[in-house]
Write a protein that binds this DNA or RNA. Structure first.
Lengths: 92, 92
DNA sequence: CTGTATCCGGTTTGATACTG
DNA sequence: CAGTATCAAACCGGATACAG
């Protein structure tokens, strides 16, 4: 998730692309636009050459990240049980 | 979300169908299977006629529900700002 | 009532090519 | 480097029909 990748940091487009592994150029752009539109991330363009565009989470964005972290905690806590349940289900 | 609908209760298939408004028969079945497979919900079949199947959240499921509640809280807290940001973005 | 199987149109996505 | 446009392929969800 882009929100997790950003965290408290400020990252460039290509840095995010590397960070969020597996995401396509197109999806990254699309999601960043969405975050920007909803005021969750801020986009800062440096008018240099080559272009440099940086993204940072806003206050709402960081708050959302906190709740997402809750999900991550849940995963760490229960992922083992989930895999076990999955095996039980798939077998018998 | 089914998880929210279930909450602390035990509900029948058709009760869930009514509770989670707009969900199709197919999606409900599919999601319930997923929850069951991952050990997030428990499925109890009463071998009567007509059939009676009840669903309850397991401990991991209830824990997940707690984090989902976190998301809901976030939404209540920030939805106003999001809409405002959206308007600003769409305008200028 | 609960559940599975099939079909089918709309959406989404990655690949690719192109611009400033 | 960052971003847009386009197009075919894959995916998904709803509707429907049918079964236990």
């Amino acid at each position: 998730m882009i929100i997790e990748a950003l965290g408290e940091r400020t990252l460039r487009f290509s840095e995010l692309r590397d960070e969020v592994e597996g995401i396509s150029h197109k999806m990254l752009t699309q999601n960043l636009r969405m975050l920007e539109r909803n005021g969750l991330a801020e986009r800062k363009v440096h008018p240099t050459v080559p272009p440099r565009v940086e993204y940072t989470l806003t206050k709402p964005g960081r708050a959302l990240r906190a709740t997402v972290d809750g999900m991550c905690d849940w995963t760490h806590e229960y992922f083992g049980r989930i895999e076990a349940a999955r095996r039980r289900f798939d077998d018998g």
